[in-house]
Design a protein around this nucleic acid. Structure first.
Length: 525
DNA sequence: GGATCCGTTGTAGCT
DNA sequence: AAGCTACAACGGATC
């Protein structure tokens, strides 16, 4: 009699889940306990580290995982709200027949790696016969640890270097495609839930197991779970992830093969302020509802059918960028800091300006494009990639001259696709402090107008009016800088700038100029 | 080893 | 209207 504990960490799915597949195919295992641990020291006791949209998405993902385990294998997911160590201490102590296997997935973040080490150490000391496995994650294309340890590895700082690293690791087939490992299928069967481990069997002072349903009810009653709203196109879970991938990728070879990151400020699908114009798969990747290798293969399949765009701008390019950032986040020390981070130039960002930061976060800077983006982020957990560029440039080297870590923290809490490695990478990039950044003097205009390369499009004006309804009657020509509209126009639009909608908190041209100078001085210091 | 090129996605103003 | 140029000018890789 041997029980496997499958600890779902970063892979909330049945497909391409090495930890689950391993436990299902191990012949010495006759019962399997699927567990997810919600660690209050990571989420915050009142989930303050997770925005409400993120929390909702996570709970939906867990509910879907539970449902899939149930409908396919008759299994059930148990949730523990505790430190992982407390959970395993209780399991080892309480489960007499013995835990034969703990099967989980790799986590590259510092917190995840120390968590892994704690659990390994615990079993080594208190249950050395237990087979403890942390399988290389299939949330990334590379096995990060192996790649970084490889003699050919050098920190990639551009897409070209990244491509050459990828081909040296994976090799190319006859048609020049990278030869990535095949994603795993869902397990055909799963051992039954162990007897004696249920909802009530592990009540102790430190934690108890819950069903997802009970967790959901608890969170709702405490007011942590806001109901799903119509402005959110993303519902968490593997079921939704696979459906979206089919809808946006597998069944759209023409879209996939022509894919380029949009270069204009058009923020979403034409005339739809909700649905992104990109694939919208990132929340599913970051939550682990979808495997990176699985998407790669779907794109690969499309690319083999006809001519297609290439990295950096293709979908494969997007995945390679993601991979590059994961590799750097694992190999560069102090990745999430300025001090001691060899990939972060120290810039004198001055003091934290609470008023500016709050105006930015709450979407009341007086710059409608910026405010629309920040309000969309708060409500839905999503923002278009160019919007992310615009608001982060605005907060840091562009206009407000605030440290990138403040913006990083806001994105970290609110974005559905929030991810430690990628979030830090993107802020290092956009703040202009990393070696892979654009030159610091290339700023994004927070008010892209018709004369610039970012053309005003009806969809953009509609997008702003949707999220900043104060401006819904404003003529499009003043939509980016409503304070420049004559008072009679403001009156006609029933929105007086300065009272119904704020005046701009900075002079954008003056601040841009000053900030470029400050940045230069900081570099020279 | 100095010059040159390049970096996933800049902006403004002109023709 | 798309394309050119000036702006301001980093830093790593490459030749």
């Amino acid at each position: 009699m041997s029980t496997a504990v499958v600890w779902f960490r970063k892979c909330l799915r049945l497909h391409d889940n090495p930890a689950l597949s391993h436990a299902c195919s191990d012949p010495s295992i006759d019962s399997l306990l699927p567990v997810f641990i919600l660690d209050p020291s990571a989420t915050g006791p009142s989930f303050e580290n997770l925005g409400s949209a993120r929390l909702r998405f996570l709970i939906e993902s867990l509910a879907d995982l539970d449902h899939r385990l149930k409908s396919k294998y008759g299994g059930k997911l148990l949730i523990a709200q505790a430190r992982p160590l407390a959970v395993f201490e209780n399991l080892v102590r309480g489960h007499r027949p013995g835990i034969g296997l703990v099967s989980s997935d790799y986590c590259s973040e510092p917190s995840g790696r120390s968590e892994t080490a704690v659990i390994q150490k615990f079993f080594g000391k208190h249950s050395p016969k237990t087979d403890v496995r942390f399988h290389p994650s299939t949330n990334t294309l590379f096995d990060l640890e192996k790649t970084i340890a490889s003699p050919v590895y050098k920190n990639p700082k551009s897409m070209r270097q990244m491509e050459s690293l990828a081909s040296s690791i994976f090799g190319l087939d006859g048609s020049g495609f990278l030869q990535l490992p095949e994603p795993l299928a869902e397990p055909r069967g799963m051992p039954p839930h162990p007897e004696g481990i249920g909802i009530d069997s592990h009540r102790s002072s430190s934690f108890s197991f819950h069903t997802v349903r009970a967790l959901k009810q608890e969170l709702s009653s405490k007011g942590f779970l806001t109901p799903t709203i119509c402005t959110v196109p993303f519902v968490g879970g593997e079921t939704e992830a696979l459906a979206r991938m089919k809808k946006k990728v597998s069944s759209q070879p023409a879209f996939v093969n022509a894919f380029r990151k949009p270069r204009t400020s058009s923020t979403n699908s034409p005339n739809d302020p909700i649905e992104p114009s990109t694939t919208g798969l990132s929340p599913y990747l970051s939550t682990g509802c979808l495997s990176a290798r699985r998407i790669w293969k779907e794109v690969d399949h499309c690319n083999r059918q006809s001519n297609h765009t290439k990295p950096p701008e293709s979908l494969h390019g997007q995945l390679l960028f993601r991979e590059m950032f994961y590799l750097l986040s694992r190999s560069v020390v102090n990745w999430d800091q300025e001090d001691g981070n060899p990939m972060c130039k120290p810039i004198d960002w001055g003091d934290r300006d609470e008023e500016k930061l709050l105006a930015w976060e709450e979407g009341r800077t007086g710059f409608p494009y910026i405010d629309a983006m920040m309000r969309q982020l708060e409500t839905t957990g999503w923002m278009h990639h160019l919007g992310r560029h615009a608001v982060s440039c605005f907060l840091t080297r562009g206009q407000l001259w605030q440290h990138w870590k403040h913006g990083r923290d806001v994105f970290g809490r609110k974005l559905l696709d929030s991810d430690w490695a990628l979030n830090n990478a993107n802020w290092l990039w956009l703040a202009g402090v990393a070696p892979f950044s654009m030159p610091y003097f290339r700023l994004y205009n927070p008010c892209p107008d018709g004369k610039s390369s970012l053309n005003v499009e009806t969809s953009t004006a509609n997008f702003i009016k949707f999220w900043v309804p104060e401006l819904k009657n404003f003529p499009p020509r003043f939509i980016y800088e409503p304070h420049l509209a004559p008072v009679y126009v403001q009156k006609k639009a029933q929105c007086l700038i300065g009272s119904d909608y704020p005046n701009p908190i900075v002079d954008r041209k003056k601040s841009a100029k000053e900030n470029i100078t400050k940045f230069k001085l900081s570099l020279a210091a």
